[in-house]
C-alpha cells in the first residue's frame, strides 16, 4: 500500500474543479484509491464522494492506494494535489 498526506492550500478547498481532476486521474489506475479527511472517507474515483468530504483550506487529507499500480497512482495523485489544491489561487507571488 502507498500512502501520502496532503494539506489543502487552496482557499476554496476541495471544490468541483479539483475534485473532478482528482477523480479523472484516479480512474486511470486499476488500484483502489481511498481519500480520508478526518472521519470521512471517499473513493477517489467518485466525484460526488470527493466533494462530500467537505475538505477545506488547511484540511489534511490522507490518500491511500492499494493494488498493482499503487506506486504510480500515488505519485500521480500527489503531483495533481499539489497543482490543483496546493497554492492559493490568484495570489500573486
Amino acid at each position: 500500500m502507498k500512502e501520502f498526506h496532503f494539506t489543502v492550500g487552496d482557499p476554496n478547498g476541495m471544490h468541483a474543479r479539483p475534485a473532478g481532476a482528482l477523480a479523472a486521474c484516479a480512474k486511470r489506475f486499476a488500484c483502489a484509491i481511498r481519500v480520508r479527511h478526518g472521519e470521512k472517507e471517499a473513493d477517489a474515483k467518485r466525484l460526488l464522494s470527493l466533494m462530500s468530504l467537505g475538505a477545506r483550506c488547511g484540511s489534511t487529507l490522507t490518500v491511500q492506494a492499494l493494488g498493482e499500480d499503487e506506486e504510480e497512482a500515488a505519485r500521480a495523485l500527489e503531483e495533481l494535489c499539489r497543482v490543483q489544491l496546493g497554492a492559493p489561487k490568484g495570489k500573486e507571488t
Binding site: 468541483a16 474543479r17 473532478g20 477523480a23 479523472a24 474515483k45 467518485r46 466525484l47 460526488l48
Partner: peptide
C-alpha cells in the same frame, strides 16, 4: 467551459 465538463462527469459518476 469547465463548469459543463464537471456536469458531464457528474452524470457518469458512480455515486450518482
Amino acid at each position: 467551459a469547465g463548469i459543463f465538463r464537471i456536469h458531464g462527469m457528474l452524470l457518469e459518476d458512480d455515486d450518482l
